[in-house]
Design a binder for these strands. Structure first.
Lengths: 340, 340
DNA sequence: TTGAATTGTGCAATCGATTGTCTTATTATT
DNA sequence: AATAATAAGACAATCGATTGCACAATTCAA
């Protein structure tokens, strides 16, 4: 068992009989230090196994080179790939990433904010919790000018830069696709209407309906938390009604999955009796049978873009430009809507 | 735009006309401070919107209440659920979590180690990169007595506490299950043999074969990195041979997926012509058709257990007990091995 | 009443790296 | 040769919270 072997710049300084400040500057390639000294310092640092103590440095410079991420749940593929995108770019630019999960709860989200603030992150990327209705906790950052970028689940109330996918267009192309397949009674299972993404998907859907002069039946638009369980409830409601729809555009793939499973159980044929389109292109969607037609959104791209935006703000401090970036989506046609 | 509004204990001290040390002690509920003063301090702290600066505290106490996690890739469900388990418990115990992805590369893994060390994490939980063959970088932690716990992907070379699932038993029950279904020529696609998990799965498989007096044909045991692509190669090799197997136990679900897709493409019937069993119970496995029989392992439980172990070491510092905890697995029977 | 014990706070050093300012040595300029 | 300019490095303060020790005020025992 070796001893605490924590080498500091002062140990290097002592070994070379120079001052700590010189060591610090040498390690940071400061112009005021001669090449000779720099080399000596760096060699000695390596020899002693010196590893900088980020805590000390951060305290002094009050900049941690760390960005915080708040997401609902890491185990959802969209979010984990967003994180991959965030981490990739952040690391490349020399930033660390701290991840917190809100589990879609407001209280947890508030905890995450405190945690990240206590860690003095340089900026934050967040996607809000489904069940949050109050966003005051984010003021911890905005009040102190800590850059904040939202992605995917954004709310108008929070005035920051945002990165979203084109949910409106996603809803539109999903609906238009179903219309092109000859469907007439098209239902939509929408998500919580305080979140823009679900509002936009619904609006896109409605736009397509109007464009093609299809009367929208109110009974065919239902709101849902879009979970596996609630998806079953929706499936039941829609498919067991007196006048069931001939197509369903589900607010996400999870709900579409519930519908497919329910239909299979009841012997309802997809896509012949009811066509189904989801949203997200979750990894499982491709392997369902029938495979699921869905709107693809790249978590990786969203994460990367959000990070790009955040680092710009951190580094330039160019005031509050408050951009909203919209990334493209595209339809992946599969069997559930009739593709052979 | 508000000003930098960073309240420190000294601001509280000034406001109450007491010293900083008293404020610090009051906030930490030190016994030497009177209740009256404590209350005054806490009220003032709230009033001024004080938020402790973890950096300063960490620097002084050289303990960050943070644990580091190194995993191959967050987007694999097993790992993301492990993280969920880690985070859950860590948060409950007052620890933060920093996550780094190695992308299965040795170099990246080494970077992660540096990053976490620079952040002075109190302990580390790791699952090694597939492509790592040298593990010296972990000495950064072990040399300095920073607690380290491995999970799932562990190597004997590293002498630390470990949490794994019962891969041996997993291999055994998978094989025995296939045998019970009447399969005679059973193939196994194994993973890299420098990782215990794959060694153990293979050994469990072999044990079952021996137990049931089935001769193991060497051609039927192949090693693979277990990716989607390589799975196809394996499927081709096995299914197009002159004497194809009547069952395949794949080292993971991804490879099993490749086999199912390949078989579907070639019109080979599963499970009639060839039965398939996977490992992990990925989210998609249930929805494949045929649905995939697989060995379930709970990432969440593994993560939780690893955290429990790590926090024990951090808090008790009870030397190097070097436990290895083995969590149970169980077989989930589905269509790919004959379940109706 | 006096010395001892107890209680409540303040002082100042500390963690390790950074940085503004000062000092000394060296080189350039006229 | 004398002065200015530059280069290389040292000193010491600083970031914010913690903590060993000192000290004053109060209480208690004898």
């Amino acid at each position: 068992m070796k001893n605490e072997n924590n080498v500091t710049i002062h140990d290097i300084a002592k070994a070379l009989n120079i001052s700590g400040s010189t060591v610090s500057r040498a390690l940071n390639d400061n112009a005021r230090i001669s090449e000779k000294t720099k080399k000596a310092v760096k060699d000695m640092a390596k020899q002693l196994g010196y590893q900088p103590n980020a805590l000390a440095s951060n305290l002094r410079t009050s900049c941690t080179n760390t960005i915080g991420v708040i997401i609902p749940r890491i185990s959802r593929y969209f979010f984990s790939s967003a994180i991959t995108g965030i981490e990739e770019l952040a690391r490349e630019k020399g930033y660390n990433v701290i991840i917190c999960q809100s589990n879609d709860l407001e209280e947890r989200e508030s905890d995450c904010v405190q945690t990240l603030f206590a860690s003095r992150v340089d900026g934050v990327i967040s996607s809000v919790a489904l069940k949050a209705e109050n966003y005051d906790h984010y003021k911890t950052f905005t009040n102190r000018n800590i850059p904040l970028v939202f992605f995917d689940r954004v709310v108008d109330e929070l005035e920051t830069s945002k990165v979203v996918v084109d949910d409106f267009k996603g809803g539109f192309i999903a609906a238009e696709h179903l219309i092109s397949k000859g469907c007439k009674r098209i239902a939509h299972i929408s998500g919580p209407q305080h979140l823009n993404i679900y509002i936009n998907r619904l609006q896109g859907f409605l736009k397509a309906m109007r464009k093609h002069h299809i009367v929208v039946n109110e009974e065919l638009i239902i709101e849902s938390p879009l979970t596996r369980e609630d998806g079953l409830r929706c499936a039941k409601t829609l498919l067991e009604s007196d006048n069931p729809p001939d197509a369903i555009f589900a607010g996400n793939d999870t709900t579409a999955l519930s519908i497919i499973l329910y239909a299979k159980e009841k012997g309802i044929k997809i896509p012949e009796e009811v066509a189904v389109v989801g949203f997200s292109n979750e990894p499982f969607s491709e392997y369902l049978s029938p495979s699921l037609t869905t709107v693809e959104q790249s978590g990786f791209d969203v994460g990367t873009k959000a990070t790009e935006l955040l680092l710009d703000i951190i580094q330039n401090k160019t005031g509050n430009k408050q951009e909203t970036i919209v990334l493209p989506v595209n339809l992946i046609e599969r069997e559930s809507s009739g593709k052979k």
